[in-house]
């Protein structure tokens, strides 16, 4: 299949648990994810559902408890540290908080240059030129290169963070809520910048967010996460138009609509996210799902695929 060859990153049966005293926190439970070249995969879910943990697993900041990750056909999870160091420059990250993601003691030029010096890319002169080029790409005046992060606004800092992520010409960029700490007006600028960069450089994004409007705008495909599992995934339009999993349905209906004519009665989910220390048996959403029946409480729903639209539910909508 055409898509098979286009796969950039593939993860199967990923599990990540963290010790919490005598118990375990099940942050990620049996997640499969595929990211194709040149696409933007949106990863959506409420706080604490494990989307950032999944991002950190892919970045190699965490090791999965179980499961395998392949990047361009090479198995990352089987690599030694030395081998992994060579591959990891192809997977970079844009962080959520632009106030915390830049070292306050390094000038922005030195922050952007750091990936180049660490990986011994080019001579000192070439590195300087690369930094200048990157600053131009993200729209920061080159004269500001010796300024420090605290002299910039949040949006400008995020641009610096983007420049740093681009320094090594990565193939995949994990965007961990890159705009959620920014003002709405700045969000649009940064999103446009990300979209432009994708067109120019052929980048692939894993776009983690809890903001459905942002995800709808930027993603080609979307994965919806609930309590450490992916409950639904598929093409963005398809998911937003015809959600099959009840959770997705409720998530979408909670999005504020600006046009009063189109406003409908909101159907809100009741209850809190269950504790990931003791996730509910069966379908994880059954404690909050109005359609739940006995089978949902006892057996884990298997994944159903319809035209690239995957969902795991006993009673799809």
């Amino acid at each position: 299949m055409e898509r098979e060859q286009n796969v950039l990153l593939r993860a199967e049966h990923l599990v990540k648990t963290f010790p919490a005293g005598r118990n375990k926190v099940h942050a990620i439970s049996d997640v499969d994810i595929t990211i194709c070249r040149g696409e933007t995969l949106g990863l959506v879910g409420e706080s604490g559902c494990g989307k950032s943990t999944l991002g950190r697993l892919i970045l190699g900041l965490l090791r999965p408890t179980e499961g395998k990750i392949w990047f361009e056909g090479q198995e990352l999870t089987a690599m030694s540290k030395g081998e992994f160091r060579k591959v990891r420059r192809d997977i970079q990250c844009i962080f959520q908080d632009p106030y915390a993601s830049l070292d306050p003691r390094l000038s922005i030029a030195n922050s952007i240059m750091e990936p180049l010096t660490i990986n011994h890319v080019g001579t000192r002169q070439e590195q300087q030129e690369k930094v200048e080029a990157l600053l131009k790409i993200v729209g920061i005046p080159v004269e500001y290169r010796n300024r420090f992060p605290h002299q910039f606004s949040g949006g400008q800092r995020q641009r610096v963070g983007i420049a740093r992520a681009l320094a090594l010409n990565p193939k995949l960029i994990v965007c961990d809520e890159p705009v959620s700490a920014l003002d709405v007006s700045i969000q649009a600028q940064v999103l446009n910048l990300l979209a432009d960069l994708q067109n120019q450089m052929g980048l692939t994004y894993l776009f983690i967010s809890h903001d459905l409007n942002v995800v709808q705008r930027i993603s080609n495909r979307v994965c919806i996460m609930y309590l450490g599992q992916i409950c639904e995934s598929g093409p963005t339009e398809e998911i937003f138009a015809h959600p099959r999993h009840p959770y997705t349905h409720f998530l979408l209906s909670a999005v504020p609509v600006t046009d009063p004519e189109q406003r409908q009665e909101k159907e809100l989910i009741s209850g809190e996210l269950p504790s990931p220390i003791a996730p509910p048996p069966g379908c994880r959403f059954h404690t909050r799902c109005p359609y739940a029946t006995e089978v949902c409480r006892t057996s884990v729903p298997s994944k159903t695929e319809e035209n690239g639209h995957l969902f795991a539910c006993h009673h799809p909508l």
Partner: peptide
């Protein structure tokens, strides 16, 4: 646990480099 330490690790910095360049100065 600062994000800039994660950022350095993602670019392939060794523990020693992270300690000397980011942690100790801060």
């Amino acid at each position: 646990n600062a994000e800039y330490v994660d950022a350095a690790r993602i670019t392939g910095a060794s523990h020693m480099l992270i300690i000397i360049r980011h942690i100790i100065p801060n």
